[in-house]
Design a protein around this nucleic acid. Structure first.
Length: 497
DNA sequence: ATGTGC
């Protein structure tokens, strides 16, 4: 319950080795460290961190490592708690944390999923070459900004009637496509879980949550959410890139957003309910923010049903945003097939999934972590069976993003999970103290990046210096054997809150 | 992350 310390991390003051962790942390593989159960008495399993020494040094600057150790105390946790190379402090759980719990004692913890349920990333790819459209791109970006509301508390053009909300929450993207016509049947094939989790029950989503979400489909939100028009700068795997339909010079769109106020309210409701239940049962947690309940309990089941509904809402949100992008692209580039933004894939990075691992059915919490199934996994679309599941790692604003594909080895290393981004290095406040938003805007423009963001303060908080080096983070994921790099994408235009 | 906070 202690307040997160506000670090003014500067590289000069970083210790050479993470002394707090020596000698209990040891390297056990390429880019893989383990913190044994000897570190703290209450650990049920070891903690593992995918990192190099530089990233490890950055991690010990905040509370994320102790938070990961706290995760190892959760009832029913199996194997180890896993930290990704972009790990940083979060609510209870670190962002960039993975944990699998097993029935019957296994718990589900809303803090292990995050406030923005099914925050995730969707990549769209056109057949357009950047070369051929570069002159109009600033105008396209401006049109996108007019069509897509960004920022805190904004609402969209779509307002769902209660019956429609009910169907979005239970049926997800297939409802938007089949009934509302906001996409094509092929779209659904290229979404994690086909854009719908089965376990949703709208009776478990509070009226307040549904009210908050009713006009938020097709909105981006604030914080680190964004929509970026990009160019495939470099193909890094000449076999995998064509399998995903990617080529150098190609125009792509990356969408990063989640379940907006609806998911936030679902999390808030569940944390409160579980906190009360813990008090009632006399259960003491190491951190109250790790409020949880056995998945088999009424509280656990109710939260799971509400989380599934919120996840479906988030996929629907990214689907409506895709529809908006398609409308704008059609206006500027016409009806030809090359102008059609096809969905490469859509992945969640704040979610819990019931998955078999090592012959056991686990509730896998991924918070700021992306599922990364290897080739041949039955959940992958047929076109990606050979190559593996696409994983998208956005960098910070103005820097590169990566496309990777999951490897089979990820199952044993990280319950088939990869990182989700560059990872924050500085707090928002610290970043704002060091960066002048208007100057950053000018610098991005000088780089040829069109910036559609009304708030200079928001820009300063999301400045590249507030984030870890995405190239390093991705290299570590590859070195660990979790996923392999396929392509490097660079920004051309960015929409932010 | 969030109609930002018990």
């Amino acid at each position: 319950m202690s307040e997160p310390p506000c670090h003014e991390a500067s590289m000069e003051t970083l210790p050479e080795v993470p002394q707090q962790l020596e000698p209990l942390i040891r390297q056990i593989g390429p880019a893989l460290y383990e913190l044994g159960q000897g570190f703290r008495e209450d650990m049920r399993v070891p903690a593992r961190i995918v990192a190099d020494s530089e990233l490890l040094q950055q991690m010990v600057q905040d509370r994320s490592v102790p938070q990961l150790v706290n995760v190892t105390t959760l009832p029913g946790i199996q194997g180890f708690a896993i930290g990704m190379p972009d790990m940083h402090e979060g609510y209870g759980f670190p962002v960039g944390g993975v944990a699998g719990t097993a029935l019957p004692d296994g718990v589900i913890s809303p803090g292990g999923i995050g406030f923005d349920i099914n925050c995730g990333v969707r990549l769209l790819a056109t057949g357009l070459r950047h070369e051929d459209v570069k002159e109009v791109l600033p105008k396209v970006a401006h049109d996108l900004a007019r069509s897509i509301p960004t920022g805190f508390g904004r609402h969209g053009r779509l307002s769902l009637a209660p019956e429609q909300m009910d169907r979005v929450l239970t049926e997800g993207v297939p409802y938007l496509v089949d009934v509302l016509g906001l996409g094509t049947p092929e779209d659904v094939d290229y979404l994690e879980a086909r854009g719908c989790l089965d376990g949703a029950d709208t009776a478990k989503v509070s009226v307040r949550a549904q009210e908050r979400g009713h006009d938020q489909l097709g909105t981006l939100g604030g914080g680190n959410h964004f929509l970026e028009v990009q160019r495939v700068e470099r193909v890094l795997d000449s076999e995998a890139a064509p399998a995903l339909g990617l080529f150098e010079g190609q125009l792509t769109v990356l969408i990063h957003t989640g379940s907006r106020g609806l998911g936030h309210q679902v999390c808030t409701d569940a944390v409160r309910t579980m906190d009360r239940a813990l008090a009632r049962e006399g259960i003491q947690l190491v951190d109250r923010q790790l409020a949880c309940a056995p998945l088999s309990s009424a509280e656990g089941q109710d939260y799971f049903a509400a989380m599934c509904a919120a996840a479906n809402f988030a996929w629907a949100n990214r689907q409506v945003l895709t529809y908006r992008v398609r409308e704008v692209f059609r206006r500027w580039f016409g009806d030809r097939s090359a102008a059609w933004p096809r969905i490469v894939y859509d992945v969640a990075h704040n979610i819990a999934k019931l998955e078999p691992h090592g012959g056991q059915r686990l509730c896998v919490h991924r918070k700021g972590a992306t599922r990364a199934f290897g080739p041949g996994h039955p959940e992958l679309p047929a076109a990606y069976h050979q190559v593996g599941q696409p994983v998208f790692i956005p960098g910070s604003m103005g820097t590169a993003s990566f496309v990777l594909v999951g490897k089979e080895a990820a199952e044993a290393i990280s319950l088939s999970s990869a990182c989700h981004g560059a990872g924050r290095r500085l707090s928002r406040a610290a970043s704002k103290r060091q960066v002048v938003g208007s100057e950053l805007r000018a610098a991005l423009n000088r780089q040829g990046i069109a910036v559609e963001c009304p708030s200079n303060a928001e820009l300063a908080e999301e400045a590249p210096l507030a984030y870890k080096d995405v190239d390093r983070v991705v290299d570590v994921v590859e070195a660990a054997g979790i996923a392999r790099k396929v392509a490097r994408l660079v920004p051309l235009a960015v929409l932010k809150g």
